[in-house]
Structure formats: structure tokens, C-alpha cells
Computed example of a mutant assay.
Amino acid sequence: MPDHRRPVPAGRKGAETKRTAYGAGTPEERRAILDELAGVPLPSPSDLLPRATWRDAEWYLTARELCGLLLELRDAPALNGSPEPLVAVEGWRWTGYKGGSEVGVLNLSAAGITADGRVVCAILTANGDRLQPEDRLARLFFTLFRSAEKSR
């Protein structure tokens, strides 16, 4: 895979070196790096390099796998508390939502069980080198998920 990373400014090369060493390290080397960093204060969000890193370090699941996990974990407190307004549907037996984002990535995943017992799932993932248009994609996702209410 081609290297899409931009050059790292001089002040951030130490962090880049540590991240690279951690990614390539053995469990013992990783623990040593974490022990070394334990006393270092966290950077301010404004100090972080705003670039997409999803090509470097990420996990990958298919939409089918994500749907299965949401349904499998439907009794977990994280998915069974207050409903997410983006996917809350009046009268459905259950809805669960898990989203995530970082620079260049937006994931919206939801599953539900309709009033008549049908299982519904919707996944929207957008990847790129810039921030994703969250408002526009959230509206699209909301429409997609809610369309199951009308389909039979």
C-alpha cells in the first residue's frame, strides 16, 4: 500500500517515532513504551496533527460483522441505556447504536428490532483524508435506518 502520510513537523517527530516503535514492537517493548509515557502529560487536542491515520492503524469489520456484534451485545449497558436519538424509533422493541470518528473517518452503525420482530441494521462508513461532513452523513444515515420502518 502506498504511504499517504504527510511529513511530520520537527516537534512531533518524537511522538511519531514512539508510535512507529509501538506498532512494530513486541509485547514487552510496547509495555516499556507505555511505562515511559505514563508520566508524560497528554497533549492538548490543538497540538495534535490533524491528519487521517486510518490507513496506518485501524480495525476493519464488514457491515454484516458490525450488525452481528450490535445484536449480540444488545443487552450490554452501553447499547441498552438511553436510546440514541439518531435511531430511536417509537414502538420498536429495541434499537442500539455505536458510532465513531477520527480525522478522515466517520462510522454510524445501528441495529433494531421492529414492533413486529423484524431485525433491521444500517451501517454507514466514510473514509477519506479530510474531516467527513458529519451533519450530512448523519441525516442520510437517519433516513436509511428509519426507512426500514416503512418497508416490509
Rank of each mutant, 00 (worst) to 15 (best):
A10N: 14
D116A: 08
E29F: 00
R74V: 11
G68N: 04
D75G: 06
R55I: 09
E90D: 11
A148M: 05
G100A: 04
E65I: 02
R51K: 13
P27V: 00
G104R: 00
P50T: 00
R146V: 04
S147R: 12
W94I: 13
E58R: 13
L108K: 07
E149Q: 12
T143Q: 14
L79E: 09
R118F: 01
R51G: 02
P9E: 00
D3K: 10
G91R: 00
L131V: 04
L79S: 09
S44P: 02
E36P: 01
S82M: 03
E84G: 01
S147C: 02
A24T: 03
G99R: 14
P133E: 10
E16V: 13
C67Y: 05
F145A: 00
E16G: 12
D35A: 12
G117E: 07
T53W: 12
A63C: 03
S147V: 09
A52P: 09
V8T: 14
L37D: 01
S151A: 11
S151N: 04
L42A: 11
E134A: 15
L37A: 06
L34N: 00
F141A: 03
P2L: 13
R5N: 14
L124C: 06
P45E: 10
D75W: 08
R139W: 09
N127A: 15
G81P: 08
S46Y: 13
T20S: 12
L124Y: 09
T143M: 12
V103T: 14
N80M: 04
G117P: 12
L61N: 11
R5F: 11
D116G: 14
T17L: 06
G128N: 10
Q132S: 02
W94R: 13
R6A: 05
A32R: 15
W59H: 07
R152D: 15
A38E: 05
P85Q: 11
L106H: 01
L140K: 15
E134Q: 03
W94K: 06
V120Y: 02
W59D: 11
P7Q: 03
R12S: 11
E65G: 02
P77D: 05
A15E: 10
E102R: 08
P41W: 01
A148T: 04
R139A: 14
V119F: 05
T20A: 14
D47N: 06
D135V: 08
V103Q: 08
G128R: 00
